[in-house]
């Protein structure tokens, strides 16, 4: 340091200790101001209430197994979506990617290729869509909403064409292992749930502990500032869309195995459930905030509510109404909190 340190230090009006000494308060405040914290409490309340109202049906192991497996697919995709939403983007194509990847994988399996080569082709199909999304958004500066609305249509149409509009279910010699990967369980927990748990931990580390994760937040907070200070904005944005498509493709391969078949309509409407999960978990659609745990807990809350409604005898066709209302409610909540901050 060639600034005159002797002169600077004694004259300083604040000491390093007082500058650094506010850690505990911040963590406690951060907990209370985190949406995912309140969602966790809401989830806890729901579970307690349902366990009292429906002790046999709700708090059975079977129901726990079903609920966790059902939200695992959404949760895995919601993690990828979180990365995109943090940058201030959106990916509406995830539902169609599920259909496209499922059919691509199914076509390979039906042609009697091995489970891993078929899965690899499926993953590549998903990454291809992610590449198109990411390139157009990051490098050509097109609106993420419009681009991914376009690929939503394109990927679904490719799925229909590729499947010949037929259900694919003769999965060849590797059918058993392929169907086990998506539909089986390890230690009585469904395989996709394991993947969700591991992915959530990995995403939490990526988002909080790596420069790449921090750049996502920086881009969502102030893209020009990030660019000016040397963050490779375009590359990071492209990678976020690739990551989202990759998580979607993994979920799609497992979902295909769980279903034991591939139909081109698979994943229709998933984008809404996925986006709802991330937003309920505290991601801001304007960019700059969101987290891995939020995506996990948001997906869990939606599924528990859906499950509870079914148990309460509410027609499952009402599901869309609830999910849609939840998105609006979560955004409303965010705006109210934002207003209070200002």
């Amino acid at each position: 340091m060639s600034l005159d340190a002797r002169q600077a230090k004694p004259a300083a009006s604040v000491a390093v200790e007082s500058v650094l000494g506010n850690k505990e308060k911040t963590i406690f405040q951060r907990l209370l101001s985190a949406q995912s914290f309140w969602v966790t409490i809401a989830l806890g309340v729901m579970v307690v209430v349902m366990s009292i109202l429906q002790p046999e049906a709700f708090s059975s192991w079977d129901n726990f197994y079903n609920i966790t497996r059902n939200f695992a697919f959404v949760g895995i995709i919601a993690l990828g979506m979180t990365a995109v939403i943090i940058t201030g983007g959106i990916d509406l194509s995830v539902g169609s990617i599920i259909g496209f990847v499922g059919v691509a994988t199914g076509v390979m399996l039906q042609a009697e290729y091995s489970w891993w080569l078929s899965s690899l082709v499926g993953l590549s199909a998903g990454l291809l869509v992610g590449l198109v999304n990411g390139y157009l958004v990051a490098y050509l500066n097109l609106s993420a909403f419009v681009v991914t609305l376009g690929t939503l249509s394109i990927a679904r149409s490719l799925a229909i064409v590729l499947s010949g509009n037929k259900m694919l279910y003769e999965f060849g010699p590797d059918a058993d292992i392929f169907n086990w990967i998506g539909g089986g369980d390890i230690l009585t927990i469904a395989n996709p749930v394991w993947l969700l748990v591991v992915s959530t931990i990995i995403f939490a580390i990526i988002l909080n502990q790596t420069a790449w994760g921090r750049y996502l937040y920086a881009i969502g907070g102030n893209e020009q500032a990030a660019q000016a200070t040397g963050v490779p904005v375009q590359r990071i944005k492209l990678q976020a869309y690739l990551l989202c498509a990759f998580m979607t493709a993994i979920a799609a391969v497992m979902l295909t195995g769980y279903n034991g078949s591939a139909i081109n309509a698979n994943g229709t409407g998933y984008e809404l459930r996925v986006i709802a999960s991330t937003v309920i978990g505290g991601a801001n659609l304007m960019g700059g905030s969101g987290g891995a745990y939020g995506a996990f807990i948001g997906a869990a809350l939606i599924e528990v509510i859906r499950n509870s409604l079914i148990m309460a005898g509410v027609d499952s066709n009402w599901q869309g109404t609830f999910v849609g209302s939840f998105i609006i409610l979560a955004v409303l909540l965010e705006q109210v909190r934002g207003r209070r901050r200002d």
Partner: peptide
């Protein structure tokens, strides 16, 4: 750095 700049900015 904030101390050096005599600023009461807290890093966190």
């Amino acid at each position: 750095l904030f101390v050096e700049l005599k600023s009461e900015t807290r890093p966190r």
